[in-house]
Design a protein around this nucleic acid. Structure first.
Lengths: 336, 336
DNA sequence: TGACGTTACTTATTCGGTTTAGTGCATACA
DNA sequence: TGTATGCACTAAACCGAATAAGTAACGTCA
């Protein structure tokens, strides 16, 4: 039992394939009566369009793609991506769009995935994350001319549309808050140094510290895992010139850092204040609850999707910076 | 600048389209010399296969689909799904398969998505979650004959292949542990009653309690949110015949329940013992740390994917039950 | 020498739609 | 009366590959 095609409908209705196509797609060129008959027959024999055939004639796929370059098993642990994806899905599902997600091992695999998706018309557009310094993906996507929205950093996005994450504002808010409390020796447990948003935050730190006339923050780079966060914290807290406050580039590391402080017999926030970048349930559950720079990540993802859909629709949305994060003071920050 | 097709290669090489197709697909029918020349030209002019056209001739899409019927914004909060997806991705990415993810509002939308994906050859197979009592999706998917693996319950899966979650073993382990500690008045904060795995757990509870000669556990049904978990806990803990132990159907509710117990001035585990079903970082971070029924959810997802890929490859893998969850005793359980 | 098999192709068809270029007929207008 | 216009529709090309069927050239063997 093969599935019915428009040819079957045409035969039954006694008209040509072309007429059936016009009728089914609300094109002019058929009488109301014929259109009615064609639709009735289509319904009766259970015809559904074959999207592959449609796509061959240039129809959109109603799918956007996202490739993630990180160990797949981290996905379930790292709240940022899941929240981002949930926001993306929320926006897409309202438009009956699907999200194609693929985890890849390295840049080359990632680029290969983009090429394949685009060449096979599997996606109508892409969301690009984790921009790096001199990112080779930018050039490729510019050349392929895939509708793409870069999430995170604007600086390295080339001619692609971007939705910047406003990291500078976050740094300013955190540092000014700590300095107001009386801190002067700040440290930062940063993420991967090759990620553009790490660079942006580092530059912002340097600038803000200089502006407030305090020594530059000591920065330790990590890979975002709890283990490296703990190790970095241990190193900072046992150094001669111990910082009185540490800002972490994600919540997982901040929480690991808190455990390290306890384990070293230091009181938080008495001996050292801690701030997590990106809030999550985790931050509210630890003791004392973690002060955090919070942003509405699902909304961020949703906004990126809206931009992408505009781009796909042929408009040319402007690159812009997202809402700045806001500090939620909780129990891990206080006077030094 | 149109993208090159095999016709362009054929023209350049001075052979027919058919010969080019043979050469590119390692089929016999062309000489080594011609094959070399064709491949060289293909590379030179940057030819990539057009997957849509291939698919029209019956090629697989290298994508599997998953539709989730729950508010998109919950996704980022509920650890179960994200861990499942991460396991799914881990397995898929090794095979260069993509995952198509779509959040839907209701069953009809979900079924419509499956029909569309399958009719448009967008996916080679499906993963089906959250099976319900008399689930209408089963019949549709059987009829469409889409390769499908049902995750969770086997009972209602009809002729579809399933990977059962072995909830019975979990119930047995939790209840026997509590009874050994001396508990006799158990309660359960369950999930949605229409979900098949809720039913399975409920039946297992009844059976195990009867077998151990203790009164049946009082069950309250919820929607898995922290709010409902808190409300259910409040109700149970203020009832005349207060239970001495509560088992929760997820971790979010268990943690909310712990907060409620504290708020009501009850000591945990002194006055009441709590067990979460599914372990997560959250369970380790609360005070006291939460006793939990743990399973390797990413591995579960990965196993389901392997089954699905076998099914897609034309094999007929057997339905089976997953590893049983194991209890991790922490601080929220003790003698009554 | 002719029948038969290979090899290395070419030609034509197929997948299921969309789309363009007609075609036959009725009506309208100069 | 001849011509322009519009409508409803048909026939055929097209999208880009895979593939079945056909063919010419060549070698082999009885």
């Amino acid at each position: 039992m093969k599935r019915p095609t428009i040819a079957d409908i045409a035969r039954r209705a006694g008209v040509s394939k072309g007429a059936v196509s016009f009728a089914l797609n609300d094109q002019p060129g058929v009488s109301a009566e014929t259109r009615r008959r064609v639709l009735a027959i289509a319904k009766e024999i259970g015809w559904t369009p074959n999207g592959v055939a449609r796509a061959l004639s240039g129809a959109p796929s109603h799918t956007i793609g996202m490739a993630l370059r990180r160990p797949a098993r981290i996905l379930g642990v790292e709240p940022f991506f899941m929240e981002l994806i949930s926001g993306v899905e929320a926006e897409l599902s309202a438009r009956e769009y699907a999200l194609s997600l693929q985890v890849v091992g390295d840049v080359d695999a990632e680029i290969a995935v983009y090429r394949r998706w685009w060449s096979e018309r599997r996606v109508d557009g892409l969301l690009l994350c984790d921009l790096r310094v001199d990112d080779p993906r930018i050039g490729v996507l510019e050349e392929l001319a895939v509708p793409t929205v870069v999430i995170g950093a604007a600086a390295g996005a080339g001619s692609l549309v971007s939705l910047e994450s406003n990291d500078g504002a976050g740094v300013t808010e955190a540092v000014e808050y700590l300095v107001t409390l009386g801190h002067r020796h700040l440290a930062r447990v940063a993420g991967l140094p090759e990620l553009l948003h790490t660079v942006v935050r580092t530059e912002a730190f340097t600038e803000v510290c200089a502006g407030l006339d305090i020594p530059p923050a000591v920065t330790v780079f990590t890979d975002y895992t709890g283990e490296e966060g703990a190790r970095a914290t241990r190193r900072l807290l046992s150094s001669r010139n111990r910082p009185t406050a540490i800002v972490y580039d994600n919540d997982v590391m901040a929480i690991a850092g808190l455990a390290v402080a306890h384990e070293m017999g230091l009181s938080v926030p008495g001996d050292v204040s801690l701030i997590a970048w990106d809030d999550s349930v985790l931050c509210q559950l630890v003791h004392p609850p973690m002060t955090a720079l919070s942003r509405d990540i699902p909304a961020y993802g949703a906004r990126a999707v809206r931009k992408l859909l505009e781009l796909i629709a042929g408009q040319r949305p402007a690159s812009l910076a997202d809402e700045p994060p806001h500090l939620i003071p909780r129990g891990t920050t206080g006077r030094p």
